[in-house]
């Protein structure tokens, strides 16, 4: 699975929606169910799935598929 596919899988699973509704362009703004509570769960899910540690400061930035992918590509070796 590509990073994109993995991220979409994690986001869809956490938000409880079909992966087909999530694309590279999805953001917290334009995605149903991606509210502040789901976002905390999403942060946990990303940490556990990609085995990385996030700072509180990262939480707000990781509010789109694109930004999550960029963060993972930068931080996962």
């Amino acid at each position: 699975m590509s990073v994109l596919e993995q991220v979409i899988h994690v986001v869809a699973e956490t938000l409880n929606v079909s992966p087909s509704t999530i694309t590279r362009e999805s953001t917290a703004e334009n995605t149903n169910g991606w509210d502040s509570l789901a976002h905390v769960n999403l942060m946990i899910a990303i940490e556990q799935t990609f085995d990385i540690a996030l700072d509180v400061e990262d939480f707000a930035k990781l509010n789109s598929i694109q930004s999550i992918i960029e963060f993972i590509e930068k931080n996962v070796t």
């Binding site: 899988h9 699973e13 956490t14 409880n16 946990i44 899910a45 556990q48 799935t49």
Partner: peptide, 11 residues
């Protein structure tokens, strides 16, 4: 289990 794994199993 990670969060998404638990979620998927429950579903």
């Amino acid at each position: 289990l990670s969060f998404p794994e638990a979620h998927a199993l429950a579903r």
